[in-house]
Simulated scan of single mutants.
Amino acid sequence: GRNATYCIVAQDINANVKSQNCEDLVQGVEVGSLENNSNGIYRNALGKIDVTGMIRTTTGTRNKYGQTVINFNNINWSDPEGVALNGSVYYFDGNLEINTPIRFENTSANTLGNGIIVVNGNLTIGEDIIYLSATPTKLNQLASVVWIVKGDVIINPNVENVAGAFMVLGNGNTCTKLEPLPDPDYHKYIKNGCGVFFSGESNNPLTVLGLVVAKAFDFGRTFAEILQGSERIIYDGRLTANPPKALSGFVAGLPVIRDFSY
């Protein structure tokens, strides 16, 4: 069968909510994907993401939001498994491939656990990315990563776990569907950097712990299990609990999770 299941966990749910109730709130605004207004600021109904402001330094190595900007020219992630984000912006100018597992960890003392990774190209994920399980002393020490990708996100078939908030902005190209479609019920796209989230062709399940905003989704997993979908995107609330400074306005429009277990 072909289906999608949406599990909404909330104390109060209005069963009479209809899509047209929201139309007056978002007229003239792209509801889903984030659209560029040509100066590096992307907007949708939730708010804006100022990519240019994130990566451009104004005082020493800091951007206008006060975050340290760290530039990389390498195309492979080679950091150790335990990664503390330290409230910084990490800018990869070009395609980025992750070929070793990444374990984002909470911080301690006066160090921030959040951070932003900006990829000016495609992001290819070849190994699992997870959060290390631990309880921080303060909420701002909680590990919380945001991936901002000006291209496609391509997940390799062997990967089963990915963590973070993915903002797949694309490079401005038009997303093109494969024709003829192998299966008309599932859209398939050409990898041209337009902003597609590719889950990978695999019999393995995929779990994304966070959220995904993209121009389009190409789901290719075929795992079958009554208690688990082939692709799961679990909104864990880390982005709202410990948002990076440059995204505080955007995060204000996201749902707030007060009590959630999975």
Rank of each mutant, 00 (worst) to 15 (best):
L123E: 08
S133F: 10
Y42T: 01
G60H: 08
S108E: 14
N44L: 01
A109P: 04
G66Q: 12
Q67H: 06
T61A: 13
N99S: 13
G66H: 03
D93I: 05
G53P: 15
Q67I: 00
P80I: 04
G47W: 07
I125G: 04
A109S: 14
I130R: 12
T59F: 13
A84V: 03
V118L: 05
L96T: 00
E105W: 06
R62M: 14
T58P: 06
Y91I: 09
I102G: 01
I116W: 05
G94H: 02
S108Y: 15
T100R: 12
N120M: 12
G113A: 02
I125K: 02
N63A: 07
K48D: 14
G115Q: 08
T107Y: 00
D93F: 05
Y42P: 01
R56E: 15
V51A: 10
T59E: 15
I41V: 13
A45F: 05
K64A: 10
I55A: 08
G82H: 10
L46F: 15
N73R: 09
Y42L: 03
V119T: 08
I116H: 06
T100C: 07
S133V: 14
M54G: 05
M54T: 01
K48Y: 06
N95H: 09
I55G: 03
N74I: 01
N63K: 12
F104W: 02
D93T: 09
Y90L: 06
I70C: 09
N99K: 12
S78I: 05
L112M: 14
T68M: 04
T61P: 11
D79Q: 12
E105M: 03
Y91W: 15
Y65R: 01
Y91G: 07
L85D: 08
G47D: 08
G87P: 10
V118Q: 11
L123S: 04
T57V: 07
I49L: 11
F104V: 06
T107L: 04
Y65C: 13
I125P: 00
Y91K: 13
S88W: 08
N44K: 04
Y90T: 07
I129E: 08
T107Q: 06
I98K: 07
V69H: 08
Y42W: 14
T52N: 15
T111A: 10
I130N: 00
N73L: 09
N106M: 11
N99P: 03
V83I: 13
V69Q: 10
I129Y: 01
Q67L: 01
D50L: 03
A84D: 13
R43W: 02
I41Q: 14
G66M: 13
S133A: 14
I70N: 11
T100I: 14
Y91A: 11
Y131K: 09
G115P: 02
L46A: 07
E81K: 03
I102R: 00
D79L: 07
G47S: 02
